[in-house]
C-alpha cells in the first residue's frame, strides 16, 4: 500500500522528528560510504583508533618511562591518545566535509549543520566504543579498573563538543574561499598534540606555569578524564565551567560562521 503524503514541518515535534530522521540517515550513509559493506566493514570504525592508541601506549610501556605519582602508564597513554584521535578526526575532516558532500544538499531537509553533526556523532561513538573495549582489556589484564567510567565517557563527549565548534569554524572558512585552510589545519592538529595536555599533567609544573597551561581548554578535558580513571591519587586541576564556556563560544561562533558561509557554497 502506498504511504500517505509527506507533510511540511509546522510543529516543533515534527521538525524534531525530521531532524532525527535526517541525522540517522546521514550516519548510516556515512558508514556505508566510508567503510563499505564488505570485509570487516564497520569493525574498522573501532579498530582504527584502537590500533593507533594501542601502538603508542605499547611503545611508551616498552620504553619504560615511569610516570610521576606512580600512575599506571598503559592506561595513561591510552587516555592520552584516544581523546587526541577524536580531536584530530573531527577537525581535519571538517575542511572538506561540505564540498565533498554536495549531493546531500539536493535534499532541502539536509542542512549544512546536519552533515557536520552526523560526523561528530559518528566519530565520538566510534572512539567511545574503542575506548570501552580498551579499558575492559586493561582491566582484565592488569586488574586496574576505571574509578568512574561515566566521567571518562563524559570527558570524551566534552572533547567532541569542543572540537565540533572548531570544526564548524574550519568548515565555514573552507567554504568562504580559504581553500588552503586544509594545509594549515593538518599541521596545526599535529602541533597541537604536545600543547593539548595529552602527555603531561598540570601538577608536574610550577604554580605560575600552571596558570598559563590552564588557559588551554583541552588540558581541562585530559585532567578530568584522568581523574575519572585514577581517582584521587595525585592532584588534578580542571574547571568544567571554563571548558563549558569554550564549548559555548566556539559552537556559537561556528554556527554564525556557517550561516555566513551558506550562500557561498557552490555545488
Amino acid at each position: 500500500m502506498r504511504p500517505g503524503p509527506i507533510l511540511p514541518e509546522p510543529s516543533l515535534s515534527r521538525s524534531l522528528r525530521v531532524q532525527f530522521n535526517v541525522l540517522g540517515a546521514l550516519i548510516m550513509r556515512e558508514m556505508h560510504a566510508r567503510f563499505g559493506r564488505e570485509n570487516l566493514g564497520y569493525v574498522w570504525l573501532f579498530v582504527e583508533p584502537m590500533i593507533l592508541a594501542g601502538c603508542v601506549a605499547t611503545l611508551h610501556h616498552i620504553a619504560g618511562h615511569g610516570l610521576p605519582g606512580g600512575l599506571a602508564p598503559f592506561p595513561f597513554y591510552v587516555l592520552s591518545y584516544t581523546p587526541y584521535y577524536l580531536l584530530r578526526s573531527i577537525v581535519t575532516r571538517a575542511s572538506t566535509a561540505l564540498e565533498a558532500n554536495a549531493p546531500l544538499f539536493y535534499h532541502a531537509r539536509v542542512r549544512l549543520h546536519d552533515v557536520l553533526m552526523a560526523r561528530t556523532i559518528l566519530e565520538c561513538a566510534a572512539v567511545l566504543v574503542a575506548l570501552s573495549i580498551f579499558l575492559t582489556g586493561v582491566g582484565i589484564v592488569t586488574g586496574n579498573w576505571p574509578r568512574d567510567p561515566l566521567g571518562i565517557a563524559m570527558g570524551l563527549v566534552l572533547m567532541a563538543l569542543l572540537m565540533h565548534g572548531i570544526a564548524l569554524l574550519v568548515a565555514s572558512l573552507g567554504v568562504l574561499g580559504a581553500h588552503n585552510v586544509d594545509r594549515i589545519v593538518h599541521p596545526a592538529t599535529y602541533l597541537s598534540l604536545p600543547a593539548s595536555g595529552a602527555f603531561f599533567m598540570v601538577w608536574w609544573f610550577p604554580a605560575e606555569m600552571q596558570q598559563m597551561i590552564l588557559w588551554i581548554p583541552t588540558v581541562h578535558i585530559y585532567e578530568f578524564v584522568r581523574h575519572s580513571y585514577y581517582g584521587d591519587v595525585v592532584p588534578f586541576h580542571y574547571d568544567l565551567l571554563y571548558l563549558g564556556a569554550w564549548i559555548l563560544v566556539t559552537n556559537t561562533l561556528g554556527l554564525v560562521a556557517l550561516r555566513a558561509a551558506r550562500p557561498h557554497l557552490e555545488t
Binding site: 530522521n21 535526517v22 540517515a25 548510516m28 550513509r29 556505508h32 560510504a33 539536493y106 535534499h107 539536509v110
Partner: peptide, 21 residues
C-alpha cells in the same frame, strides 16, 4: 546530482527514504 556515486542504487534509495521518513 541527488545521488551519491559511491553508494549503490539501493543504498541511495534507503538514504533518501530515511531522510523523508
Amino acid at each position: 546530482g541527488a545521488l551519491h556515486s559511491n553508494l549503490s542504487g539501493a543504498d541511495n534509495v534507503r538514504f533518501v527514504a530515511r531522510i523523508y521518513g
